[in-house]
Write a protein that binds this DNA or RNA. Structure first.
Lengths: 195, 195
DNA sequence: CATTCAGTAAACTCAGCAGTTTATTTTCTG
DNA sequence: CAGAAAATAAACTGCTGAGTTTACTGAATG
């Protein structure tokens, strides 16, 4: 028995919070959008903060990282970097993902735990570092510091696709994302190719 | 005749706004910190927003970009990239600079003009692109798209030194900054060296 | 010395909005 | 269908904080 009111309220909250941010979101608006009385909102949720946490929780579970990122000695390194980058890039192109992050980022002061949790969840550094460590071990790339390479690769991807958009709103288009990915893969391979 | 009260109020505001952010800053606190009556604050400034703009204006003028960034065919490219990166890196290490940016970034919704203005002012992309275009023209580097190279170079510098710090507070230490710069310069030179 | 101007301190106004209350209606359930 | 549980609408409470008012002080000017 899926509770309809509950869902209506959550859906309305996502709209309201995403459009207005926490501070400018109005509980009256949430109730109106959900086509539910204000009192009912308070029946299902403790208050504004609880509602905020609830919608973030719900959304975050949509972005569980997919299959494990592992180096595969049998596949060409360029192809693997491309796959890695494309998977990450898909997120930056998704307005659902970027809107969620914007929402939480703006409220990082009010919900420090939530923001820290979310940024830890979406941080791929550890996985990327392991990948590059394995790739270097296997001789597919040549570098002294796998962590630096991983950070550089992620940095190249995020530089113009993720960070600026997090602030200004809007998402990057897929063509630009592809250009960034190609540039990053090329540069990392040229810079660290095994001789 | 430098107006002392005016300066006291500005100084107090910088402290209050930087510590608390716009929303949680209290006009009563500003007055108390400035050791001035609340009424006097309103005598010198129209209101909270005007005060905010005033302190941002004051601070921004501290960060006027220094000498022009130009490619110099007579100097080795590695050295020039290092200088470029170090100049930029110095800003990321400065708590004054980062605090100002954090303050404005958090309030980008409330003061869209201010935020856009500030980010345009500190955006070095145009200068970097020109630099790389000249370097490639002169044969010091070899690449098809100078804009991509410029964005990559800036992206490598900002990836772990600027963007994450903008959100989490704190600044990067100089040793880490140096490591980032070295890594970025090396990668760009290896990736785009003239044969 | 008196008038004016800058400043002070503290009480006050006013609006916005989260959360509550109350009185009433709708919707299940046995 | 009776009675309980859930929901509604709208008025109300209570707080917070920006900006204002008022009554007062003191220093400079002429």
């Amino acid at each position: 028995m899926t509770n309809t009111k509950n869902e209506q309220i959550l859906a309305a909250s996502i709209d309201e919070f995403t459009e207005a941010g926490f501070e400018d979101a109005r509980m009256d608006s949430v109730a109106a959008r959900a086509k539910v009385s204000k009192r009912t909102v308070y029946k299902y949720f403790e208050g504004k903060e609880a509602l905020f946490r609830a919608i973030v929780d719900q959304r975050v579970s949509n972005f569980h990282t997919g299959p494990d990122i592992r180096f595969d000695a049998a596949r060409p390194i360029r192809q693997q970097l491309w796959t890695l980058a494309a998977t990450e890039g898909k997120l930056f192109v998704s307005s659902d993902f970027m809107n969620l992050l914007r929402l939480v980022a703006r409220e990082a002061d009010r919900f420090p735990g939530l923001a820290a949790d979310l940024s830890a969840r979406i941080d791929k550094r550890a996985a990327f570092r392991r990948f590059f460590a394995e790739a270097i071990d296997a001789g597919a790339l040549k570098a002294r510091d796998p962590a630096l390479v991983a950070d550089q690769f992620l940095g190249l991807l995020k530089a113009d696709a993720f960070w600026p958009k997090l602030h200004t709103g809007g998402e990057i288009d897929e063509a630009s994302m592809r250009a960034i990915i190609t540039g990053a893969v090329d540069l990392i391979i040229t810079g660290y190719k095994a001789d």
